[in-house]
Design a protein around this nucleic acid. Sequence first.
DNA 1: CGTAGAATTTGACCATGGTCAATTTCACCG
DNA 2: CGGTGAAATTGACCATGGTCAAATTCTACG
Lengths: 235, 235
Amino acid sequence: MMKALNTPVSVEDLDGHPVLAELPASLKERVAARARVVRLARGEPLFQRGDPARRIYYCRSGELKLFRLSDSGGEKIVNLIHPGRSFAEATMFMPRRLYPVYCTALKTSELIAYDADDLSAILRDSPDVCFQLLGLLSRRLHEKIGQIEALSLQNARMRIAGFLLAEAEKAGSADSFELEAGKKYVANFLGVKPETFSRAISAFRDEGLLRTEARRFVIADRDRLGRIARGQDAV
Amino acid sequence: MMKALNTPVSVEDLDGHPVLAELPASLKERVAARARVVRLARGEPLFQRGDPARRIYYCRSGELKLFRLSDSGGEKIVNLIHPGRSFAEATMFMPRRLYPVYCTALKTSELIAYDADDLSAILRDSPDVCFQLLGLLSRRLHEKIGQIEALSLQNARMRIAGFLLAEAEKAGSADSFELEAGKKYVANFLGVKPETFSRAISAFRDEGLLRTEARRFVIADRDRLGRIARGQDAV
DNA sequence: CGTAGAATTTGACCATGGTCAATTTCACCG
DNA sequence: CGGTGAAATTGACCATGGTCAAATTCTACG
């Protein structure tokens, strides 16, 4: 069951947040006082599309999916949320404040929930924080443009190769990383069926571009994987 | 050739703008004084992806496409710009201020170009305008999420049916509208090849859902078209 | 008007990636 | 440990929508 814990949120808890970390100390206290820690079990929904958006969130641990549903039951993950990531900020500025997507925990997760009205009031007096937020939304927007481009201009193989390289990048320069989410979810996020994802990984392994051990991926031929991602592949 | 006209921009010219219309009168004058009218010929580029983003734009007449290119020459239109629409605002808040897409005129077009630095400075002192802008970027973000959902959860037929209904909606309740852009561009925007678009339209016509006369579309069976768009189609 | 080049339509064919089904592997829990 | 249900893999098959090519209609402009 979702639990809104009484555990108070400390001022330090704001520091990981891409926007709130910039608040002046006095306001941080005020915000922290209004914030709550929320714990979700694996599979538990945080909110539904269409729910009134009273809070915005920061993921402290665990993993969540943000997704849309089609009338015929299809699901499209528009974002996978990992620790350090905040989400739902844009709802504060929508004409009708409703969550535009569903959110469900994929693992046991711990979130910090901030009060949307409170933050909204604070923004009125802090142009700096407004700018931070404008920057954040701009990055999100370009991220989405990137997703649209990938879905439209790249095939499954290219998207998957690109994703692997991006993950390796994030994990550091070791060319080795763990898949944070189940393959099923990664596949959906990439706009591909799990079967197709699995087949592509097998193919990469067979071609010697990749080695896999359990959840760990080791990239063996970064260059060629890069060429595949850009469609300059000779094979 | 692209022309930055000396034609001054009047304060009234700001009124159509979704954000600038909200400025206090004094600031409007300042902004108008710095703004310039730009005219583009059909096919002429306004900016390239990666260009320094010194201006943001408002479309007064004509039509433009915002697009990405793949390494293999493929093109994906992420937005069609029509009169009354502003664009490129998000670039003001990016860490490196570069246009993230290409922009080219599809018809002879007239734009108003605003100075990004000037607007940025103004925003520092006007939380109201900041909020307007946050709202605008939020809407853009959700628009993109909608596009991603459509590309992932709907097939070509569904997206095209949905598009026709949306256009009819925008045009008023008459169930009749003109396609503002060439079919080629609309098709690309919908993530479909022109041949597929053409075939879908023919099919709709044959099924009696639609009548077409030159550039004009008349929707004959709104309900069934709606069911097709949502995948509840029995046929 | 008439013509050139582009846009659109139509037909025939085919590839990518989805669907369905059968295993195999994995992860959690008593 | 052992067992159970979900996740992942693999194979066989097929549908959607893309490709290529040809015919037709538009549109701009001399």
